[in-house]
Amino acid sequence: MGLGSPRHAAAPVELRSASAGRLGTWMRALLRRGAPRARVVAPRRIALGAALTVEWGIDCPAGNVTSVRVTLVGHEIARQRLSARTGIHVVSKASAFTILELARVAPERGQRVVYGRDTATVPRRTMTSFAGAYNEIAWAIVVEADLGAAPPLRESFPIVVVPGPHA
């Protein structure tokens, strides 16, 4: 149920988007080869109070990125199982309790690749990740980009926040 107790941050790796592997995402990517895509390189786990360095980038063949915001977001998630004739449905509610801004940039027009490397300190007094059957604390690095007239891009890259060293 818990998500482990190792205190030390892992080495940075390219993180997988929360939407990766979903059929809809795969279909959209197949149909829209030129669709923008966010990438994030960061540790999979980070300790409270530690410095989190994130390398992020957006591949945007249309060159229409007008602004980018990268944040570390902590969410509470509560699930409810509802029984119905058609089966059991799970309804989730989520509420953000921490939004830590890592980057906010306005790239020059026409850039096909926008990237950056930014660092922020994870708060020392906040919740670590945990996941139960009904309740969960989840953390993610979120990349949001405005694309002019096109729908905005928003991709979420889950990471695990673990306890840090105590004074």
Binding site: G2, E76, I77, M127, N135
Partner: peptide
């Protein structure tokens, strides 16, 4: 070490 005692909006 965890989870910490907490009071949130949902849990």
């Amino acid at each position: 070490e965890a989870p910490f005692s907490c009071e949130g909006a949902l849990l």
